[in-house]
């Protein structure tokens, strides 16, 4: 009897009231914040890979920001999904990314260093606009 009353009450709350659930608003706001931060890092890292002058600086941009950006985007997806099986899978993806991405970055850096690729040292000079096409 009591259980059925509680269930009926829950049903009217869930279906009848059209008011906005405050917890859902907070959850979605946090998810949007996390997604935006992750997108900022991903796009910034990509821009760094395109524009930085040297292999090791490019590696820095890609390795650092990709790890953090991926984790933030997956955190945003987990927050907006809640405790479901899908968010467990998102968590697994985030776990594997946070294990493998720095390892791969380290392996690429080590291989390039062993192969004799030297970092660009000294003061940075902006490339002359006239000989931009020749270098690449």
């Amino acid at each position: 009897m009591i259980v059925s009353l509680i269930l009926a009450g829950a049903d009217t709350v869930a279906s009848g009231a059209m008011s906005i659930d405050i917890w859902e608003v907070i959850r979605n706001g946090l998810a949007i914040l996390s997604l935006l931060a992750g997108l900022f890092f991903v796009l910034g890292g990509t821009l760094g890979v395109l524009r930085l002058p040297d292999f090791f600086t490019r590696l820095h941009a890609a390795g650092m920001t990709d790890t953090l950006g991926a984790e933030l985007i997956l955190l945003g997806l987990i927050i907006q999904e809640g405790f479901t099986q899908l968010s467990l899978k998102f968590f697994l993806v985030a776990f594997f990314l946070i294990v493998t991405s720095p390892t791969a970055t380290h392996a690429v850096a080590n291989a390039a260093y062993q192969a004799g690729l030297k970092p660009l040292l000294g003061k940075y000079k902006a490339p002359d606009p006239e000989d931009i096409g020749k270098e690449g």
Binding site: T46, R58, L97, A111
Partner: peptide
């Protein structure tokens, strides 16, 4: 260099996952 391309492929894969 080769390593630039490899780095780009690796990062591209991470973005594909996302």
């Amino acid at each position: 260099t080769l390593y630039d391309r490899l780095l780009a492929v690796n990062s591209f894969g991470t973005k594909t996952v996302l």
